[in-house]
Amino acid sequence: MPKRIAYTFDPSTGVPPGVAPFSHAVRWGDTLYVTGQMPTDPATGELVAGDVVAQTKQVFRNLAAVLAHFDATLDDALMVRVYLTDFSDFDRFNAEYVTWFTGPLPSRTCVGSTGLAVGATVEIDLIVGLPS
Rank of each mutant, 00 (worst) to 15 (best):
D76Q: 02
G50Q: 11
A95T: 04
P42W: 11
P11K: 03
S132H: 01
R81Q: 01
L116S: 03
P21V: 13
S23N: 14
V111D: 07
S88A: 07
Y7M: 12
P39W: 01
L126M: 07
V118F: 10
A65V: 08
V15W: 03
E46C: 02
V118D: 14
W100T: 00
G129L: 06
T13K: 14
S113L: 10
V19R: 03
V122E: 00
D41K: 02
D86E: 08
T13V: 15
D75N: 10
I5K: 09
N62M: 14
T121A: 13
P42Y: 13
F101P: 11
S132T: 03
V98M: 05
D51W: 08
D89P: 06
S12M: 04
L47D: 06
F93R: 02
R81I: 11
T102M: 10
D75H: 01
T40P: 05
T40A: 02
Y83P: 00
P16Q: 15
G129Y: 08
Y33F: 11
V80F: 00
V118N: 11
D86H: 11
M1V: 09
S113I: 09
F22D: 00
T44A: 06
D30S: 11
M79H: 08
Y97S: 01
I5P: 05
F9L: 09
A65Y: 06
R61P: 00
Q37D: 10
R4T: 09
G29E: 14
P2A: 13
P39S: 05
M38V: 03
T109N: 09
P16E: 13
F93D: 02
F60A: 01
C110V: 15
P17Y: 12
Y33T: 04
G50T: 11
P39K: 02
D89G: 05
W100A: 07
P21D: 13
F90H: 01
V66I: 13
V66W: 04
V19M: 12
V122I: 10
P2N: 14
F60T: 00
T73N: 06
D71P: 15
V80H: 00
D125Y: 10
P42A: 05
D10C: 14
L130S: 10
T109M: 14
S88E: 13
A43V: 09
E46R: 11
L126H: 04
G29D: 15
